[in-house]
Design a protein around this nucleic acid. Structure first.
Length: 477
RNA sequence: CGGGGUGUAGCGCAGUUGGUAGCGCGCUUGGUUCGGGACCAAGAGGCCGGGCGUUCAAGUCGCCUCACUCCGACCA
């Protein structure tokens, strides 16, 4: 083992924040641009996003959603139609005031989110109960002028998808809200190998203009929480502000009920901080741009490159995303490089292996190495990738559970927040004042009221009055 | 927006009491290597973030500015 490291990554135990930044840059996911908070997503990072997009989009389509594209500019007056919504977003909008050399009659907001555009459009196209529901989604970027920025976690422009749906009834819209939250949860589990907590946001944490906001919350390696996706139920608030009405079967004019839901490139930041280790990135197999990297050893010896190429072709034909690296670098360099870049499986093939009709296979997640017959690789590797996925999920879940604590009162809350980092479960009376008090006193914020309620006692952790809910708390990104 | 830190080669850094710039990695070329970040040789690469000042002389001293970054408050 060579001591010298060329592309050193800061240890996550030493400085988690630096570790994260190192990975983003050195695994070639992103580069900084000349505009603060606007990241360049490099080919390797973008390929991950494309895989997320492709699989999630299929899940949207399978549940009846259609993709559309809305303009990136919103007239300032349109954004102002829903009162809470403007107040929520006003502090962070970017404004266009000139077109060419001419000042604009009305400034245009660069979309921070597109509720208002969708609403305006829905009001044009919805007339009758026959027009409902409309289940729309768009993949785009939005702009929010954040003060502090970090790759994937918080940037001023970021890529996302935003679903916007209108329905005839409140029940149907509520169902949609939960359906999409479930899709996000399944996606995180089945593609990102990332366990999440589903729950409802408290009043003070709701989306600007929503009646109810639901979220999935994940716990990062350092015990800090990250909101990985949201789904909002708007009721008829936006439809009333934008006059989205339809005539029902009884010829009565009714307001629609609306939802919106979104996930962003933050999902990439999330799995980096859930699965990564001190050797770098660990990409969940199902969204990895390269699932298997084939590394020929002593590649200039007779037959090695041919064999490696043949293996690559067989694996590709078996449906795996595979890459052979025949560049002029030493094998050791390549091992380290692909480990840092988080490729789930490495396949080594050298003269010794060829003689025995085997290859060496190494798992990125555990470091385990095994020798496998070349006759079996096309069945062995797909199975191994599934095993890796399952193991990654299991480890992440165990770690999260180990970092989840229970507090019954302020003393216990203090003890936990003083010495530990993670989720804290408590009972809560439902009063926002208690929420604020805990935030100020202990530095943790409410994450969500989980769907999976547990009875941890009958008193609020803060005021001691009768409790209404079990609530998750934590520090957040 | 408040508090700290950093700006010198692509990256990471050094640069003494002021004297006009150096190291490692990377890069280029040639050769030997190749089972955990190989080695040898020869090269290329710098308005020292920007401005003003002090001085015979500024990477170095002073003032101003800009950018980035970390920690808070606000947010996906």
């Amino acid at each position: 083992m060579a001591e010298k490291t060329v592309k050193e990554i800061t240890s996550m135990d030493e400085d988690f924040t630096q570790w994260y930044t190192d990975i983003c840059l050195k695994a070639e996911l992103v580069d900084y641009s000349s505009v603060k908070g606007c990241m360049i997503i490099r080919p390797y990072g973008y390929a991950i996003w494309e895989n997320i997009q492709k699989n999630m989009d299929a899940m949207f389509k399978a549940t009846g959603h259609e993709n559309v594209y809305m303009p990136m500019f919103i007239p300032e007056s349109l954004l102002q139609k829903e009162k809470d919504h403007v107040e929520g977003f006003a502090p962070e909008v970017a404004l266009v005031t000139k077109g060419g050399q001419e000042p604009l009659a009305e400034p245009l907001v660069v979309r921070p989110t597109s509720e208002t555009l969708f609403c305006e459009h829905f009001s044009h196209i919805v007339q009758s109960w026959r027009d409902l529901p409309k289940l729309y989604n768009q993949w785009c970027s939005v702009v929010r002028w954040e003060k502090t920025t970090r790759p994937f976690l918080r940037s001023r422009e970021f890529l996302w998808q935003e679903g916007h749906t209108v329905h005839a009834t409140a029940e149907e819209a509520k169902e949609e809200t939960i359906r999409m939250l479930n899709i996000y949860t399944d996606f995180c589990k089945n593609y990102l190998a990332m366990p999440v907590i589903q729950g409802q946001k408290t009043e003070s944490d709701k989306f600007a203009g929503a009646e109810a906001t639901y979220a999935i919350e994940a716990l990062m390696h350092d015990g800090v929480a990250l909101q990985a996706g949201t789904s909002h139920y708007f009721g008829d608030g936006f439809p009333k502000a934008f006059n989205i009405q339809y005539t029902d079967k009884n010829n009565k004019l009714q307001y629609c009920y609306e939802t919106s839901w979104g996930v962003t490139t933050r999902l990439i930041g999330a799995f980096i901080m859930v699965h990564g280790d001190n050797n770098g990135l660990v990409i969940p197999p199902r969204i990895a741009p390269t699932q298997v990297v084939v590394i020929p050893v002593a590649m200039h010896k007779a037959g090695v490159l041919d064999k490696a190429g043949e293996i690559r072709d067989r694996l590709a034909a078996a449906g795996l995303r595979v890459k052979m690296d025949d560049s002029e670098q030493s094998p050791g360099w390549k091992f380290a490089e692909y480990e840092m870049k988080g490729v789930p499986v490495r396949l080594e093939i050298g003269p010794r292996d060829i003689e025995n009709n085997v290859c060496v296979i190494a798992r990125r997640d555990t470091g385990e190495k095994m020798t496998v017959s070349l006759d079996e690789i096309t069945s062995f590797l797909p199975q191994l990738l599934d095993t890796i996925h399952d193991d990654m999920y299991k480890r992440a879940e165990e770690r999260r559970d180990a970092m989840t604590y229970v507090a019954h009162n302020k003393e216990e809350l203090k003890e936990i927040t003083d010495s530990k980092q993670g989720f804290i479960k408590t009972m809560w009376c439902g009063d926002p004042e208690c929420e604020d008090a805990v935030r100020e006193e202990f530095g943790v914020r409410s994450r969500c009221i989980p769907f999976d309620q547990e009875n941890l006692g009958d008193k609020c952790v803060c005021c001691g009055k009768p409790a209404k809910y079990m609530l998750y708390w934590g520090k957040q990104y």
